[in-house]
Design a protein around this nucleic acid. Structure first.
Length: 108
DNA sequence: AGGGTGACGATCA
DNA sequence: ATGATCGCCACCC
């Protein structure tokens, strides 16, 4: 059977990000992995930066830490808290808010 | 072609 | 906890 892996990495990444529901969050690394690109966390950041219309505030660095700087970081935190995401110090309480991707849906 | 860069991540001092 | 380093990789001069 012709394996379908035609979708661009960017498409798969966006797709994964869009799966994160309101009130939940994920990390660059986890998203990359969910998109079938383990180890390409930077790719996720790149896409996130350029793409428009994605819930960027739900993407954090490993451990639930906000990786942005300055105003952007403040806005991200504000937006997440508005969605009900709780922080513990500088990091998000991943224990309660980390979104889990479905394994069989890694590719499409 | 080659070097610098970055919304990363893991590891070590 | 903080900072340095290294691995990784697509992009941009």
């Amino acid at each position: 059977m012709p394996a379908r892996k035609q979708l661009s990495a960017e498409t798969r990444i966006c797709s994964a990000i869009l799966q994160i529901p309101r009130g939940k969050v994920s990390t660059y690394g986890a998203i990359a992995k969910a998109a079938g690109l383990p180890g390409h966390a930077r790719q996720v950041a790149k896409v996130l930066r350029g793409a428009y219309g994605l819930p960027w505030q739900r993407v954090l660095g490993s451990g639930g830490e906000i990786k942005l700087r300055g105003d952007s970081a403040l806005e991200q935190r504000f937006r997440l808290e508005s969605e009900g995401v709780r922080f513990r110090g500088r990091k998000v309480d991943m224990k309660a808010h980390e979104h889990k991707f479905e394994k069989p849906g890694a590719r499409r």
